[in-house]
Design a protein around this nucleic acid. Structure first.
Lengths: 323, 323
DNA sequence: AATCTCCTTGCACGTTTGTGCATCGGGTTT
DNA sequence: AAACCCGATGCACAAACGTGCAAGGAGATT
C-alpha cells in the first residue's frame, strides 16, 4: 500500500508537510517549492490544499483579547453563551448565508474536539452543510454519535443522516455510531420497547455521556420550514399539535416554546432525540444558526439553556440583541 | 486620535479582523471582501498583510503526532533537546540559509512567549535576522531583557543591540530592559564594580529569573567568524587565549569547548554574559543555528546543556546526527 | 494478456493577488 | 497661509495561483 519510505508516513503527507513549512513559515512561492521538491507548481498547489484540508496547517483568526467583538460581547452578557458571529452582508441569500456560516463553523469545531472525546451530532440542512466543510483533525479513541433518529414513513433516512455522520467520522478519525430509529415514533410504546433493545440502548447510553453536541435548529412555523418539516417526518396532525402547544422550534426533534418551556408538548414523548435533561448535561453544546427565519427558534433554545456555544451570522446576531 | 467608533479599537484593526475572517475562514476572494467592506481590492490585500503581521491571523504547521519528523526525533533522542528542523535545500547560500531559519524561528517563538513572562535576548547576526521577522503577539506584564553587553572599544554597540531588543519589545508589547555594559571587560575588577551599581544589578537580577532565553551561537574559529568576532569585541590576545584554551563557540559571550566544558577559559571571567549556571536555570533556552560553520559550536552548546529547544536548518541538522 | 479503474501528473488558461507609483487629505511646522 | 510630512487609497501591471483537462501509470479484474 505505502511506498518504500523508511518512516511510517505516506510520502504525500511528508511532502505536504514540507511544502506547508516552506509556504507558510518561509513565505516561498509555490514555484520555488516545486523546484525544491522536484515537482510541478500545480502539484505544490494541490499539496498545499491537501495540507490545509488534512489539518497539517491550522489557520486561526483571533480577535485581540482587549476587545472582544461588540456583538459577541452583547450576546454573552445577555444570554450567557459564548458567541461566534460570522460576518455576512445583509443582502445575502439564505442559501449563501447558511453556506458561509457552515464553513466557519466547521473550522471552529475542529478546535473543540479532540482525542478521547465523544461528540453528538444532529442532522438537518445546517448539519449537512457543516459536515461538507469539516477540516480533518486526527484523533484517537474518539467517537461520533447520532443524536436522533432519521427514519420517517417514506424513507429510512439512513443515507442522508449517515452521510453527515460519516463525514464527521472521516474528518476526525473517529468511530461512528448510528442511531437507526424513526425520528418520531407513531406509538410511544414502540419507542419504549426499542429502548430496551440492547443494540439501541447501547447508543442511548453513549448519548448520555457525550462531551460535546453539535446541532442546528428546527423552526417548524418559519417562512421556509427546515428540512425536518418537508421530509415527511411529521404529519398534519403533528403540526396541528405543535402549533396548538405554542412550539417554535426544536433541537434534535425535541420541541420547545419561545420561553424555553416544553411542558405539555406531547410530541416530545414520541421523539427519538435526547431529552432536555440529557442534553443539558453535555458540557459543550454548540448551536449553529444561519438566517433570521430561525430567530424565534433561537430565542427558545437560548431560553431553554440548550446552548453553550453559538455560531451565528451577523444579521441574525444583530436581531437577537435588540437590534 | 481615533475615529468616532464607540468601541475601543482602531477601525483599521476591526476591518483587518473582518477581512481575515472572510478570507481565511470563509474562503472569499479579496475582490468579494473589498466589496463587502466598501473599499478596493488592494486595500484588502494590505489589510490581510496587516492582519498577519500583527498576529490577528495565526498560521501553524503541525506535524502529525504519530510521526515526529525523522531528524527531529533523532536529535531529540541523541541530545535530549526539542528540535525544529527548517527545510532548506543543500546548495543554499549561508545568507539565505540564515534568513530562512530566522524567518521560521521568529514564527515559532511567538508560541513560546506569553503574558507575565520575561525573555532574555542575546544579540548577533542570527538574532538580528530573527528580530526582523517577528510576528506581533500582544502580551501583558512581560519583559524583554538583554542577556549580555554590546559595547566594545570602538562603539557603544547600543544602536545595534537595542534595535534588536526594540523589535522584540514592539512585537510582544513588552517592556525592554537594556544592558549598557561592554561585551567583554578589560579588567574583571571593573565588572565587579559595575555589578554593584544598582542600575546594573537590577538587570542582572532580572536575568536571574527569566522564563525563556533566545540566542544564536558564536563560532570564533569557523571559516566565517560571527559578528561578535569582526566587530572589534575581542583583540588578538583574546583570540590567542581562546584558541589556546580550546574554545569552539559561545553563547552570549560565554565560551565553551566542544565537550561543553568551560573551566580555565579566562575570558569568561571578563564576559558580561550570564554564567552557565545562571543560563541553565532558565526553563526554556531556545538556540537558533543556521549553517554548518556553526556545527562545532553547536556540539559544544549541546554538550554543555545550554539548549532546551533547537531551531536549525536541515543541512546542519543532518550533519549533527552523524549524517 | 488485455482491459478497466482510479489516482497522479503537468500543461494551459483564466483568475486572483502583491506592489510600485501617483494622488489625495489631514495634521503639523515654518 | 504656505509648506511640509505622513499615512491611506486606488490604479495598473506583473507575479503568483487554482483548476479543468488530457495523458500516463499502477494495480485490480476479466
Amino acid at each position: 500500500m505505502s511506498t518504500s519510505s523508511a518512516a511510517s508516513l505516506p510520502a504525500k503527507t511528508r511532502d505536504a508537510l514540507t511544502a506547508a513549512q516552506l509556504y507558510y513559515l518561509q513565505d516561498l512561492t509555490m514555484d520555488a517549492i516545486a523546484h525544491e521538491l522536484h515537482t510541478s507548481r500545480s502539484s505544490v498547489s494541490r499539496l498545499l490544499g491537501h495540507a490545509r484540508e488534512t489539518g497539517l496547517v491550522e489557520i486561526q483568526v483571533k480577535s485581540p483579547l482587549d476587545m472582544p467583538r461588540q456583538l459577541e460581547g452583547d450576546i454573552r452578557s445577555e444570554f450567557g453563551v459564548v458567541a461566534h458571529v460570522v460576518p455576512v452582508p445583509d443582502q445575502t441569500s439564505d442559501v449563501d448565508r447558511l453556506e458561509r456560516v457552515a464553513l466557519t463553523a466547521a473550522r471552529i469545531l475542529g478546535g473543540f474536539f479532540d482525542s478521547n472525546m465523544s461528540m453528538g451530532v444532529a442532522w438537518g440542512s445546517t448539519m449537512s452543510a457543516l459536515s461538507r466543510h469539516l477540516l480533518a483533525k486526527p484523533t484517537h479513541n474518539s467517537s461520533i454519535v447520532q443524536l436522533n433518529g432519521a427514519a420517517n414513513p417514506r424513507t429510512t433516512g439512513l443515507l442522508y443522516a449517515s452521510e453527515i455522520l460519516q463525514r464527521f467520522g472521516a474528518a476526525y478519525g473517529a468511530a461512528v455510531q448510528q442511531f437507526p430509529v424513526p425520528a418520531v415514533f407513531d406509538d410511544p410504546a414502540t419507542k419504549a420497547a426499542l429502548w430496551r433493545e440492547r443494540s439501541i440502548s447501547r447508543v442511548v447510553e453513549m448519548q448520555n455521556s457525550l462531551d460535546i453536541a453539535v446541532f442546528g435548529l428546527g423552526s417548524p412555523f418559519a417562512g421556509v420550514p427546515s428540512h425536518v418539516y418537508i421530509g415527511g417526518y411529521l404529519d398534519d396532525e403533528d403540526f396541528g399539535q405543535l402549533r396548538a402547544a405554542g412550539a417554535v422550534g426544536d433541537v434534535a426533534t425535541r420541541f420547545y416554546r419561545e420561553d424555553g418551556s416544553t411542558d405539555g408538548i406531547a410530541l416530545n414523548e414520541r421523539s427519538s432525540g435526547p431529552s432536555m435533561e440529557v442534553l443539558t448535561t453535555i458540557a459543550r453544546r454548540v448551536c449553529v444558526v444561519a438566517g433570521e427565519t430561525k430567530l424565534q427558534s433561537l430565542r427558545g433554545a437560548l431560553a431553554a439553556g440548550l446552548v453553550t456555544d453559538l455560531i451565528v451570522d451577523s444579521g441574525t446576531a444583530r436581531m437577537l440583541v435588540g437590534h
